[in-house]
Design a protein around this nucleic acid. Structure first.
Lengths: 221, 221
DNA sequence: ATAAAATTCAAACGGTCGTTTGAATGAATG
DNA sequence: CATTCATTCAAACGACCGTTTGAATTTTAT
């Protein structure tokens, strides 16, 4: 049995194997999807014995959850941090929260990833997770995202108290869709020069979704 | 060898089997994804011999392409028809194309589906196709969508000649993402009453994406 | 050093996979 | 009726699947 991961991070021998498996699984899942990726392929890519996958993660499904949680946990924390900073800078400047500031905070993990090796991982992983059949991923998405999303919905409600919560939920929903589209395809199909950076795409994504969420506002004319 | 489908629709005995396979494959793929759906499960659900799948479609991949093409072909035609109607009604009213009218035409196939049995199929199938690993679906998507998309980009350029084509491509890209999100999840996660109709979602989708594409326009203040 | 626990390993389990084969059946044509 | 072609069928092919086992090995703690 694997040692239960305690809160204090005392690294054991098996952690190296564990992380090698996670790394290999991650990249294979991003490329081929979950169902099309076998444990044997993962073990081979990780230079690890096949049985190690079950020893460390219990099942293929458990491995998927671990792959997902390893990346999404920090993303959730970064999003809450960014929202907190957004709130404090809004209050000290005397002005309230703006939709643009809130969305920029929501996308902060991707800006952060651009300065690390995560740039080649986070977008593809998030896109693929959303793409898998909901029966596989819905419980995981609820675990990872529901708390963060409720915080952001509250912030949006402060930025636009005139809009009913239901309406904000819908617009947030559509925003997620645009985000996934960017993460999955990077640039639109049929784009002439395909050397578009994530930075560029994110700027355009923010403009698009801010407009979609602010829709119908007459306060800036 | 199956009879090559000629342009004239002379129905043969095998067409019944062929369509039973397509129907069964379609619903299973929508529910579980392509990789997780076996030919045996399809043949069983269709009450058909396993070998019939290879006889009629050559391979599993060929079956996927057929499932996709059967629904997307008419969708592309309906979209071009709707755009043509949109153009003619715009020119006879003397006013030019509007972004809203163009997008409404683009979503027309879903409105049409609401009055047929396709309402339970089209949204789920399109969402799943977009979700499969791009290596599987990218050639198919190019075949089915590229022509329609270029027509719609031209129309958007007429509606908003002030925006560069590149910018319109990006905004159209984000619009597709919002559409897929609606088709895949219907309503936002965590919605209180989950009895939202596709009709309702489409209306909200149009409002959101029109605002995103019209963004920065000062012509309606 | 010794005992205990954690981890790795090769091998196998029963199943399911996509695909192929070749004979049986059906329909269409002369 | 005879013949050709299209279609269905049961059976099997080899390959790969997720999972389990039990012994060997390494690490950790006494």
């Amino acid at each position: 049995m694997p040692a239960t991961a305690s809160s204090t991070e005392d690294s054991s021998a098996g952690d190296i194997t564990r992380n090698k498996i996670l790394d290999a699984a991650e990249s294979l899942i991003i490329e081929h999807g979950f169902a099309a990726t076998s444990l044997r392929a993962i073990a081979h890519a990780a230079n690890v014995n096949l049985a190690a996958t079950h020893y460390h993660f219990g099942s293929k499904q458990g491995l998927l959850a671990a792959v997902f949680h390893r990346r999404m946990g920090p993303v959730g924390i970064a999003r809450l941090d960014a929202l907190a900073k957004c709130r404090s800078s809004a209050s000290e400047s005397g002005q309230g929260l703006t939709v643009r500031a809130v969305l920029t905070a929501f996308f902060a993990p991707f800006y952060d990833a651009m300065h690390s090796e995560l740039i080649g991982i986070l977008p593809g992983l998030m896109a693929r997770i959303y793409a898998e059949p909901p029966s596989l991923t819905k419980p995981m998405m609820a675990d990872e995202f529901s708390e963060v999303m409720s915080h952001y919905l509250s912030a949006l409600q402060e930025a636009r108290p005139d809009l009913p919560l239901e309406e904000l939920r819908w617009r947030f929903h559509f925003m997620i869709g645009s985000m996934i589209q960017l993460l999955q395809f990077n640039a639109p199909l049929g784009m002439v020069g395909d050397a578009y950076s994530l930075q560029d795409g994110l700027a355009r994504l923010i403009d698009f979704t801010v407009a979609g969420i602010e829709q119908g506002a007459a306060d800036q004319c």
